[in-house]
């Protein structure tokens, strides 16, 4: 537990003592928002996952039926592979690119600040807008910007999003583009804390760039990487908007991920119970993953 309650001579505090109430008063607005918009809907979602949801006729208890239905549905099973590939791919891609960007753009120069701001823009742009933009970039004829570029290299136009073999990878590239700058900022903060004298010492010893990265930079930004990894574990598997706006799960279901399946189940097939069950399954997996990542992080820190 926490080690904060060590006030000397712990004297009796009245039940409504200022010190006990005050923190909660300050927390109240945030808690209220979290309660109304996060915890109540979450609890309701878990509750609904055990029902055949019929808002008007009254919900019908079905026990674990929704779970068995979701877990045995072959389209959900197909979605697992896509979700893992996309989640892991975009998380690792986001970290590698974010790290590279951070190394390139670290520094105090004014020009670097401007470039950093520009690079950060994808993070603050609405995903729907980004999706529309990438649809244009990926446009399957030589009118599309990427295909125009390929044309200069003498390569024919590629239907990135319309080919089931490339659609998931194309979605991944867009996701990395959106995710990397966010990671970059966290890693930049980590880089700022690296002791400069270590670099100088390394330079004196005449080490290679790779050795410097491996033995000086990486160990120093360990905590930052830990945060980035935890965030990736939380966000990676619940990917939805990127796929929904770019491909809608198509073509031929080749980019269908867990959450787009759940969305279709809930909102086009009106099966709110099944959609809730699917979401609860994802919640459990995410929780497990986050706890695991944190465990390894803590163990690593302790070493």
């Amino acid at each position: 537990m926490t080690a904060t309650v060590t006030a000397p001579g712990a004297r009796r505090i009245r039940v409504f003592g200022k010190k006990a109430v005050l923190p909660w008063v300050f927390l109240a607005p945030g808690l209220l928002l979290a309660l109304v918009f996060k915890f109540v809907p979450m609890a309701k979602g878990i509750w609904l996952s055990f029902f055949d949801v019929r808002p008007f006729l009254g919900d019908k208890w079905v026990g674990l039926d929704n779970y068995t239905r979701v877990l045995t549905d072959h389209r959900f099973q197909d979605a697992i592979g896509h979700t893992l590939l996309l989640g892991i791919g975009m998380s690792l891609g986001g970290i590698v690119v974010g790290f590279a960007l951070a190394l390139l753009l670290e520094g105090q120069a004014r020009s670097l600040k401007i470039v950093r701001t520009a690079v950060f823009l994808p993070v603050v742009t609405a995903t729907a807008v980004v999706g529309e933009m990438w649809r244009l970039l990926y446009y399957p004829t030589s009118d599309g910007l990427i295909n125009q570029g390929l044309g200069f290299l003498g390569l024919g136009p590629t239907p990135f999003l319309d080919n089931p073999d490339t659609a998931l990878w194309a979605t991944m590239v867009m996701s990395v583009w959106m995710l990397a700058p966010y990671n970059m900022v966290i890693i930049l903060a980590g880089l700022a804390g690296v002791d400069r004298t270590l670099y100088e010492a390394a330079a004196m010893d005449g080490v290679s760039l790779w050795q410097r990265l491996r033995h000086v930079t990486l160990p120093a930004i360990r905590p930052a990487l830990g945060i980035v990894l935890t965030l990736a574990a939380i966000r990676g598997l619940r990917v939805f908007t990127e796929v929904y706006v770019l491909t809608g799960g198509g073509p031929a279901g080749s980019t269908e991920v867990w959450m787009t399946r759940a969305y279709t189940l809930g909102f086009t097939r009106n099966d709110i119970g099944g959609a809730s069950a699917a979401s609860v399954v994802l919640l459990c997996v995410t929780l497990l993953l986050t706890v695991t990542v944190n465990h390894f992080r803590k163990r690593g820190d302790a070493r």
Partner: peptide
Amino acid sequence: MGDRRRSRRLAAALTAAGLTFGTA
């Protein structure tokens, strides 16, 4: 220490009750 924790818990419960009432 136990008292303090208890009073904190009570305050937390009251806050939660107040919030629930407020939302209702």
